[in-house]
Amino acid sequence: MILHGYWRSGAAWRARIALNLKGLSYEQRGVDLRTGVQRSEAFVVLNPQGMVPALEIDGAVLTQSPAILEWLEEAHPAPPLLPVESADRAHVRAMAALIGCDIHPLNNLRVGKALRETLGADQAAIDAWAARWIVSGFEALELLVSRRGVGWCFGDAPTLADCYLIPQIYSARRFGVPLDAFPRLLAIDAAAARHPAFIAAHPDAQPDAD
């Protein structure tokens, strides 16, 4: 497998975490989003959307991190990243979607660039914009974790939800968002900082990192 990603991309980071939790070997190829490599003719052949991650598998190319993570769960079910019961699986997917649909897209690199170039926002305004969505999302997630989590987002082992959460906490810190109001999320972040799969997926550990 070949994972095309950017070291600090939250979406690519999710895929790395899941691949590592599954114990799978993969080659990484860096796509520097800052220089526009994702819009090059060669990369658009892989992913017409011009975004990361893209995962090459047996002659096929998978795009969009939710689809990649779901494929990993189907193709490599052990260890599982979704619970056994169907309602529990829906809860985990809802936690992941809370981050992947309602927080992350609103504070990624493309949106920040659009705010700056189209609306003339300065960095303080961009940080405030990001904090608005991160805080409201984390408030809901903190409550969900209090009901379902036992050391992780759901239960006592990492799930798809944790693959989404850890990159978003990193992003929150980059935007200067205070996190003291989210002790359960911070406890998960601390657990991930001790877990080999999460350590290996961290941006600083990637071959294309600055």
Rank of each mutant, 00 (worst) to 15 (best):
L115R: 04
D58G: 11
L62F: 11
P53A: 11
E56P: 00
R89F: 00
K22C: 08
V92K: 01
G120V: 09
C153I: 00
K22F: 07
L119C: 05
P158D: 03
A130M: 04
R110A: 14
P83D: 09
G120N: 07
E85F: 08
N47E: 03
L143C: 13
H104K: 02
C101H: 11
S25D: 15
P83Q: 14
C153N: 01
P66C: 04
N47W: 00
W133D: 02
G149D: 02
P80D: 08
V45A: 14
T118L: 14
F43S: 01
G155K: 01
A78C: 07
M95K: 08
S40C: 06
H104V: 02
A87N: 02
G149P: 00
R148L: 02
Q123S: 12
L21D: 01
V84N: 05
S146Q: 11
V135H: 11
V150L: 12
A60N: 10
P80K: 02
L55N: 01
D58E: 14
V135Q: 06
A114N: 07
G100A: 14
A18G: 09
L144Q: 15
I17Q: 03
M51A: 07
A124Q: 13
Q38A: 08
G30P: 02
D88L: 00
E70D: 14
D122G: 15
A114Q: 15
I134K: 06
N108G: 04
G23A: 14
A140C: 06
D58N: 15
A60T: 06
D122R: 10
I134E: 04
L69S: 07
P53N: 14
G23W: 09
R147C: 04
W152F: 11
G30E: 13
Q38S: 06
L143S: 15
M95P: 07
Q64N: 10
I57P: 00
A96D: 02
V37N: 01
Q49G: 05
E74P: 03
A157V: 12
R39Y: 12
A42P: 05
M51L: 14
E139R: 14
A42S: 11
K113C: 05
F43E: 00
W71T: 00
M51N: 03
C153S: 15
A18M: 05
L24W: 12
D127H: 12
P158Q: 11
W129L: 13
L19C: 05
I57T: 02
A67V: 09
S25T: 11
V84A: 12
V150M: 15
E74T: 08
Q28A: 05
V37P: 01
P105S: 06
R39Q: 15
V150T: 14
D102F: 09
A124G: 15
E41M: 10
A75C: 07
I103R: 02
V61G: 03
D32L: 11
S146E: 14
L119V: 02
W129V: 13
Q49W: 01
